[in-house]
Amino acid sequence: MASFTLGKYLPYNSLIHKMDPRAKIIVMMLLLCAIFIPAGFIGYGILVVIVTSIVLVSKLNLKFVVNSMKPMMFMLVFLLIINILVIKTGPILFSLFSLDIYLDAIMQTFYIAIRLLLMIMITTCLTATTKPLELTLGIEDLLKPLKVVKVPAHEIAMMISIALRFIPTLIEETERIMKAQASRGVDLQEGKIKEKIGGILSLIVPLFVSSFQRAEELAFAMEARGYSPGEIRTRYKQLHMKYGDYLAIVFGVLLNIVMLTLSMVF
């Protein structure tokens, strides 16, 4: 449980780390858009080069990023099988046990694999280079214009930051309950499915009860310190966009234009 690394922040000192979180989120969105424009081999080639260089500039280990693809492998193999069975266009590559395998089937799977890899690289890059708190501040600021249509931007950001703050506390709590239940004879590892479900229930129920208690106490503590949702409050951490940040956004937009042009040409 200690190795739990969901969007883990890696504290290096790089150009990407120093960027404004808002700019990073916008650029990430733009890159994700670019990935879904079908711009053929050249387009994906450009994207792979760009995203790889971003990862390298962030000083992240490429292996760390590619490793996060591993859980996807099963899905990709499954997709390949379906594609081989369904897609019957393009030239036949070869026949396997009287089953014709078409080029398009392989290409489609390859494109999806590349898209997934790029998506994972981009999102990992965002979460690994941005502190969770900065990320929530960024989300809050970006959602601010939606206040007009009554989207509670600040409350959403507060909820995310509290959820992030309590992840380690709840993991600790889960470990404690697991030990407590194990000492009472609950076996979470072995046994029949029915027993396993019982075991998991014995973990989830106390965890829920204690989480609700925690939530109540936290609400009291927040209220006692003057917090009231919807009220105006100042903010300690101020975000400042720099030239580089604007440049990155412009670059993201340009990339989308290039991709669109490529997709129309090919």
Partner: peptide, 25 residues
Amino acid sequence: FQNPDNQFIGATVRDDIAFGLENHR
């Protein structure tokens, strides 16, 4: 309050002390 964990709102010590200040504008 009693439970030290359930009244720690900020991500770091700095943010936690700032929480009340932010509320008091």
